[in-house]
């Protein structure tokens, strides 16, 4: 289980924080040479001890683990925001935002006890869910949404290898912090400016 490896868990928290910093702070306005310095600075800050433990323990304790899809998106988002490297095309970002918003609506209220049906339980070794995701991945590939296709395949592969602590496929596909960040990206002017490039 990779999630028990401190390097992986630490790195995933660093990516989460850098993605949020890229969203909330005007990093894109800094000179290009300063941006890597700031990224290293934030990373070091998370490693500093807070009440005897690395600060990233507090972030992980509060927000939980990021999904695999989220980690891939965070990498793409950090690179796009700070270095204008485009791994996720604007059209993919829009589609991802819509898909995750709908999935979150179908997942979280039921997981919180809205009805007797728990959509989260569908994530335990359900061949039908896998089949739907496979069709989606093929459709993404056919429409040349390669970032989405790879994200989906990587999440499913990571789940089958149990790379996170969870045995539930949903936890590899999305997490609430990712959904919120993704929805907030539509309000980020910097993203819009990159979209036009």
């Amino acid at each position: 289980m990779i999630s028990s490896d401190p390097l992986f868990t630490g790195l995933s928290v660093v990516l989460l924080c850098l993605a949020w910093a890229s969203l909330l702070l005007p990093l894109a306005r800094l000179p290009l040479a300063l941006r890597p310095v700031l990224i290293v600075g934030i990373t070091l800050l998370l490693m500093l001890p807070l009440a005897g433990d690395p600060a990233w323990y507090a972030v992980r304790g509060t927000f939980g683990d990021s999904s695999i899809s989220a980690l891939l998106f965070y990498i793409a988002f950090i690179l796009q925001q700070n270095f204008s490297w485009q791994l996720c095309r604007p059209v993919e970002l829009v589609l991802l935002r819509r898909l995750l918003a709908v999935t979150a609506l179908l997942l979280y209220p039921f997981a919180l006890g809205l009805t007797g049906f728990d959509s989260y339980s569908l994530g335990y070794a359900n061949p039908w869910l896998l089949a739907i995701l496979f069709i989606m991945a093929l459709l993404f590939w056919w429409r040349t949404y390669y970032f989405l296709a790879i994200s989906l395949a990587a999440s499913v592969a990571a789940w089958s290898l149990q790379m996170l602590e969870s045995g539930n496929l949903w936890d590899y596909l999305l997490d609430p912090v990712f959904v919120v960040l993704l929805l907030l990206t539509c309000m980020k002017p910097a993203v819009a400016s990159h979209q036009t490039r």
Partner: peptide, 16 residues
Amino acid sequence: TLLAVASGFALALLLL
């Protein structure tokens, strides 16, 4: 990309 998608899902199917 197609190869990656096929591999990812084949692995999941194999280990299901």
